[in-house]
Amino acid sequence: MQRMNREEMAARVARDIPEGAYVNLGIGLPTRVANFLPQERDIFLQSENGLLGMGPAPAEEDIDWELINAGKQPVTLLAGGSFFHHGDSFSMMRGGHIDICVLGAFQVSVNGDLANWHTGAPDAIPAVGGAMDLAVGAKQVFVMMDLLTKAGESKLVAQCSYPLTGLSCVSRVYSDVAIFDVGPAGAHVIEMVPGLTIDQLRDMTGVDLQLALEIA
């Protein structure tokens, strides 16, 4: 079995983002998806801090600290891009105007519950940012994550044990070894890396998995 690396995962998610989509990419791994969106597709990247039509990182000499993304990294604005205040930015999410958001996760349940903001550790300082708004607001929520923790525990679970970000909000999970549709009908495997079988995947996750019709 050949696990996908970070770049391959980002490229795989990018393949599923269609022309014309309004997309919010979360901080961390999801940000890399931008590097793989085909130039010929018009895709509108939204950043929660008030820009639409976000472009790639600038050259060193063009850095402007009033033009940053949600991760507070310098970015650029494409021709046709726009700025707006926080009320409008979160209306874009909550109001159902964002087609796809891509988020990282600690855990996703087979019915699409998401846990990605807080480990629940008593000494942790909680911070939530825009995660809960994106989770409930975007029409489709994609999660990008390694299937297993460093300790070998599945992050795709029957029920999340970490505090929830949103209920039944995730539609698809892109992991390093397989892609799953999740939701009210449970988890369906839609792709696996070569050399991996559904039974191995069931062993790895310990959850009930069905093969999607298209690959069964």
Binding site: E48, H86, G87, S89, F90, M93, R94, I125, P126, A127, V128, G129, G130, A131, M132, D133, G137
Partner: peptide, 15 residues
């Protein structure tokens, strides 16, 4: 003291 508010709710409550 900390009152933690999701970012969009912070905006909505201010609005």
């Amino acid at each position: 003291e900390l009152e933690l508010v999701p970012q969009g709710n912070l905006a909505a409550r201010i609005q």
